[in-house]
């Protein structure tokens, strides 16, 4: 079997497995997995910029929140129905990611990290500042009646699981497709040696811009769907912590692998879920994981798997 077919079988298999799992999982884990799939979609988006293009952003919460608030505010204040609201979330994500990219991509390395961090922080503070509309930290609830998409009630657990699975499948397959296309392969080359890519005649700025917009738009889609499926929009999703999470998930699962973001999100979600039952200081786990991963396993779980066993893994 060729590498392309094998990877299609592997990722298709994951989606089939996730589809089958809903019939056997107990309620609690059923709900968790729906949440994990949406968050993993966010991580997939993050991975396109960090894992494949080599640009470490500390401000992706801005994109997640752009999708979430683009969706939520239009429902809340303009009376949108879910479908146009989701579109509004996506468009907000595209605009915000393009805007930030045009500024931040003028820098590189450490400066890029700080610039993304600062603009995301400004976005978070802006949400707080316009508390009259956004209800700030407290956030607002999207009522059940406003969460009916084409006659399907998204607050129902089964429907919600399906919706999350569809989003995740789209994001995963988009990523898989992207990295096997010339565009994606050029991004990997930019990560490895940008100057060389430029001297092969590629417009590396345009490639990085494209990567950041795709990455930001997927993140925004995840944010919009998250708000819609779980019925809540709040400023905490725009905070620094939600910029750190996708970095953590991707590092754990394996940066620059298609499967990594899902695996990292799954593990970290349950690790934090488990430890928050024991202590309020559950973010300690995240801190320790960040340090240990950076020190001992910068490739992450899937990266190690690729290095040791399956070299064809995309």
């Amino acid at each position: 079997m060729s590498a392309a077919r094998r990877s299609l079988a592997l990722h298709g298999g994951l989606i089939a497995l996730l589809f089958a799992l809903q019939f056997v999982l107990p309620d609690y884990h059923h709900g968790n997995l729906a949440r994990i799939m949406v968050l993993a979609s966010y991580a997939v988006g993050y991975n396109i910029l960090f894992g494949y293009t080599g640009l470490l952003s500390l401000g992706h919460a801005l994109f997640f929140a752009a999708g979430m608030y683009g969706m939520g505010l239009t429902i809340q204040h303009l009376g949108f129905t879910p479908a146009p609201a989701l579109v509004a979330g996506l468009v907000t994500g595209i605009v915000v990611s393009a805007g930030l990219a045009l500024l931040a991509l003028r820098t590189s390395g450490v400066a890029f990290m700080i610039v993304t961090l600062m603009f995301a922080q400004a976005g978070y503070l802006t949400i707080l500042y316009f508390g009259e509309y956004t209800r700030g930290d407290e956030g607002f609830v999207i009522q059940q009646a406003e969460r009916v998409l084409w006659g399907i009630d998204l607050s129902d657990p089964t429907n919600r699981y399906f919706a999350a699975l569809i989003l995740f499948a789209i994001c995963l397959m988009t990523c898989l497709h992207l990295v096997q296309r010339p565009f994606g392969k050029t991004l990997v080359a930019v990560r490895e040696n940008e100057e060389r890519v430029r001297m092969l005649g590629y417009d590396t700025f345009a490639h990085k811009l494209g990567a950041m917009i795709v990455s930001g738009t997927i993140s925004a889609a995840a944010g919009a769907v998250y708000g819609l499926l779980f019925g809540y929009v709040g400023a905490s999703f725009a905070s620094v912590q939600y910029s750190i999470f996708p970095l953590l998930w991707v590092l754990l699962g394996g940066a620059g692998t298609v499967l990594g973001p899902f695996i990292g999100t799954l593990f970290m979600f349950y690790l934090i879920d488990f430890s928050s039952g024991i202590t309020t200081a559950y973010m300690l786990i995240a801190g320790v994981a960040l340090v240990v991963l950076t020190l001992f396993a910068p490739q992450g779980l899937t990266g190690e798997l690729r290095r040791r066993l399956w070299r064809w893994l995309p």
Binding site: L56, L58, G109, V110, M113, I244, L247, L251, A281, Y282, M283, L284, A286, G287, V288, A289, L290, V291, V292, T294, L295, P298
Partner: peptide, 16 residues
């Protein structure tokens, strides 16, 4: 870049 990620981890460890 890796030290930034590690000091983010350190931030959470000290704080928590």
């Amino acid at each position: 870049e890796r030290t930034i990620v590690a000091t983010i981890g350190l931030l959470y460890i000290i704080q928590q």
